[in-house]
Design a protein around this nucleic acid. Structure first.
Lengths: 202, 202
DNA sequence: CCGGAGTATGAACGCTTGTTCATTTACGCG
DNA sequence: CGCGTAAATGAACAAGCGTTCATACTCCGG
C-alpha cells in the first residue's frame, strides 16, 4: 500500500506532531488528532513511535541537535574575536529560530512533559547553550571589548547573556514572515543589538 | 465547618491553580489534583469556579490587571523624560516578574488554552504593553535620546522593544531568589540594560 | 507465484478526564 | 434555638484519553 521511501510516514508524523504540539501544546494534543493529521488510524502511529512521549522526545532532541550544530558551525566559521563571535552567534541563532518557529517553541515550552531522565538531558543541553553565550561575554570583557562593570551589579554577565539569549530565542513570537523586514535583516539586527547589550554605551 | 472569611477558599483554589498550572501546565493539571492541593473534593471546586477554564481566566486576568497597574503607576511616578521612563518601566516590570513568577509564567504560556473570546482579550492587553514600550522608544528617538538608525534596519524600534520586553518578561526563568543578587539589584540592572539596548553604544 | 516483512485497520482495553447532582454538613443571624 | 444559606461530600456521568491487538492488506525478493 505504501510506495513511500522508508521512514517517510515516520517523518510525516514528526511534522504533524510539530504543528499540533506547537498549536495546542503537548498535553493539549491527542493521538487521534495526530493520526487524523497524517490520515492514519491511532493504532498505526504506534508502528512508528512507541508512545506519544517518544514523539515529543524525538522532536525536542532533533531541534537541540540542530541548534547545537548551528552554534558550533557558526563558531567555527568566525575567528576568535569575541565581538565577531557574539555578533555571529546572535545572528545565526536568530535566523535559526525564525526558520524553525514550531520546533523551537515546542522545545522551549513542552520539554517539561518529558520523563525525568530525558528532561534532565534537555536541561543540560540548554544550560550548555547559556554557558556558551556567557563564556563569550566573559572572554570579551576580559579582553576589553565588552564592559559590564559600569552596570553596577556583580556578575552582570549572567543577566546580559540571558537578555541576549531571550531576545534571540523569542524572535518568532513577534517576527512576521509576511512583514516588511526579512529574516536576514532581523538576524543581522539582533547581532548588532547583542553588541549593544554587551558593549554598553555612551 | 468553614470558619474562614468569605472567598478564602476561592483564593486558596486560585493559589493552588497558580502553583499547579505553573508546574504542570493548564492541560497537564487535573481538577482532582487541584482539589487535593486544597484538601477538597473535585465537586467542591465547582462551588467557587464554574469550570477549570474559568479558574485559568481568573488567574490570567488578575495578573494582567496587576501588570497594567504596575506599568501605569510607574509611568505616573516618573517625569516625561523617555530615558527615565524606559529605565523605570524596565526596572519595575522586572521586579514585578521576579515577585510573581508563577502568575506571569502561567499567563504567558497557558493563555492559549482560553476560549477564543477571552484569549483575544488577553492578546489585546499584551499588545498594549508592547505598544507602550515601543512608544517610549519612538518618543525617545524623536527627541534625540535613543538611536536606532545606526542599526541599519528599518523599524528597529520593534525589535529593540521586544528585546527589552523579553529580557524583562523572562527574568524569572533564570533569576534565583536564593542567589547572590537581589531582586532590586536585578531590576535596576535591567533598567540600565534597557538603556543600552535603546541608546546604543560606543 | 509465493511467502514474509512491514504497515494499516478498527475494535477494544482500562483508566482518567471535566463536570453534575442529590444529599449532608456547618455556620451566622434573628 | 432553629432556620436558611453556603459549602462540601461522594458517587456517578459521558466522553475522551493513550495504548494494545488480532486481523488484513500490500509490496518486494526469490
Amino acid at each position: 500500500m505504501n510506495v513511500r521511501s522508508p521512514n517517510a510516514t515516520r517523518e510525516r508524523i514528526h511534522d504533524a506532531g510539530l504543528t499540533l504540539f506547537n498549536e495546542r501544546g503537548y498535553t493539549g494534543t491527542t493521538v487521534r488528532e495526530l493520526a487524523d493529521a497524517v490520515d492514519l488510524t491511532p493504532g498505526a502511529i504506534y508502528n512508528h513511535y512507541p508512545s506519544k512521549e517518544a514523539l515529543l522526545f524525538a522532536i525536542v532532541d532533533r531541534v537541540h541537535d540542530e541548534a547545537d550544530s548551528v552554534l558550533s558551525e557558526t563558531l567555527r566559521g568566525v575567528g576568535n574575536d569575541p565581538v565577531a563571535q557574539l555578533q555571529a552567534l546572535a545572528a545565526a541563532f536568530t535566523a535559526f529560530h525564525i526558520a524553525r518557529p514550531r520546533e523551537t517553541r515546542v522545545a522551549n515550552r513542552d520539554y517539561i512533559y518529558l520523563p525525568p531522565g530525558e528532561r534532565e538531558s534537555v536541561v543540560r543541553r540548554r544550560r550548555r547553550v547559556r554557558a556558551l553565550f556567557a563564556d563569550v561575554l566573559r572572554d570579551g570583557e576580559r579582553r576589553g571589548h565588552f564592559s559590564f562593570g559600569e552596570l553596577g551589579s556583580a556578575d552582570a554577565v549572567q543577566a546580559a547573556s540571558m537578555a541576549i539569549l531571550n531576545m534571540v530565542v523569542l524572535v518568532a513570537e513577534w517576527f512576521d514572515p509576511a512583514g516588511p523586514r526579512s529574516a536576514d535583516d532581523t538576524a543581522a539586527l539582533h547581532g548588532r543589538l547583542a553588541l549593544r547589550i554587551a558593549r554598553g554605551g555612551r
